[in-house]
């Protein structure tokens, strides 16, 4: 098979001949390439090229406030930036805080998500169920930055509605965003609001894959909703759980907008999640060499996560 006139020869070849070629049934060796090339070239040049640039930058002392025409320019410093990052308490603290945030939101989202999915799946109240299901896309479509703005209003010390709710429960009002625990709780609440629907919808999709006959037979067999959940519904929801754990970890590592608007990482470092921290080093301190090293370490972490995700979910696609 020569390569160039493939499209042409395929078109001109008699149908029988084209059917006889087992490895390239009806299309040339290069045909996929033409369809793929535009997307691959574009994504490569705007995704990979900057990444390579970041790797190069991470090996230099690259402070944007220095002028490029200064004597030493941007000197090559080897792994210095990486050593600095790995010995930087702030970096580790913000990674730990990101982990703590993940452990604060995800279990709640899973518990609420299962509960909501079961309520949306249960027969009865079909109109109310339909309305509720539709309403779940509202948090998901809300601009993250605006979620942060709403959060600042709701958790305002003087006129926030959160304090009003607390007073109904008999708890005295507090300056949520002004103290470390309150600010952390506030971003946790907003994340739970925004992402619980996603978790619930994934569980619901799993639930709706339970064959109807099996579920009905099980309902006749047992009165206990617990047994139904445990032996019939849960097995269908579990694949979704792994997806949730991995996708949410990638999302938490990415989380920037809402927290940036609500707290800018403060007070102190109470909500200084990893994206906020890297952004500050890069665009406020302008130590781009250091920030690039942090970004590359974050990228490595993300690649490990996404490999894990792909490994678990897409083995069947070859």
């Amino acid at each position: 098979m020569t390569s160039v006139p493939q499209n042409l020869s395929t078109r001109l070849a008699p149908p029988a001949a084209s059917g006889a070629r087992r490895h390239h049934p009806g299309y040339g060796r290069w045909t996929p390439f033409f369809f793929l090339a535009p997307a691959v070239i574009v994504l490569f040049s705007i995704g990979i090229y900057p990444t390579l640039f970041a790797i190069a930058t991470s090996f230099r002392r690259y402070n944007i406030t220095r002028r490029a025409d200064q004597q030493d320019g941007f000197p090559f410093v080897g792994f210095d930036n990486y050593f600095t990052v790995l010995h930087d308490r702030g970096f580790w603290d913000s990674l730990l805080l990101t982990g703590k945030f993940y452990l604060s939101v995800v279990p709640v989202q899973i518990a609420l998500g299962i509960l909501i999915a079961l309520m949306l799946h249960r027969p009865g109240w079909s109109l109310l169920r339909a309305i509720t299901r539709v309403s779940l896309v509202v948090p998901l479509a809300t601009t993250y930055a605006v979620v942060g703005l709403i959060g600042r209003l709701i958790f305002n010390r003087d006129f926030g509605v959160a304090n009003q709710f607390m007073s109904w429960l008999g708890v005295s009002s507090s300056d949520w965003l002004g103290n470390p625990t309150g600010a952390f709780l506030a971003i946790v609440v907003m994340d739970i609001w925004q992402w619980t629907p996603f978790v619930a919808l994934i569980f619901l999709a799993g639930l709706s894959m339970v064959p109807v006959e099996i579920e009905e037979a099980a309902r006749l067999e047992t009165k206990s909703p617990w047994a139904l959940l445990r032996y019939v519904q849960l097995p269908y929801m579990l694949p979704g759980l792994t997806a949730i754990l991995i996708l949410r970890s990638a999302d938490v590592l990415k989380l920037f907008d809402t927290v940036f608007v609500m707290t800018r990482g403060g007070p102190g470092a109470a909500t200084d999640l990893i994206s906020i921290y890297v952004q500050r080093v890069g665009f406020k301190v302008f130590d781009l060499g250091l920030a690039s090293a942090q970004a590359i370490l974050l990228l490595i972490l993300t690649i490990v996560l996404s490999r894990l995700y792909i490994h678990i979910f897409y083995q069947e696609i070859e």
């Binding site: 994504l43 990444t51 930058t57 990638a250 994206s275 890069g282 920030a291 970004a295 996560l305 490999r307």
Partner: peptide, 16 residues
Amino acid sequence: FISNRMISPIVLALPV
């Protein structure tokens, strides 16, 4: 293609 979904914008924001 799919793994691009996982990448944090902050990783690309600096070099871009």
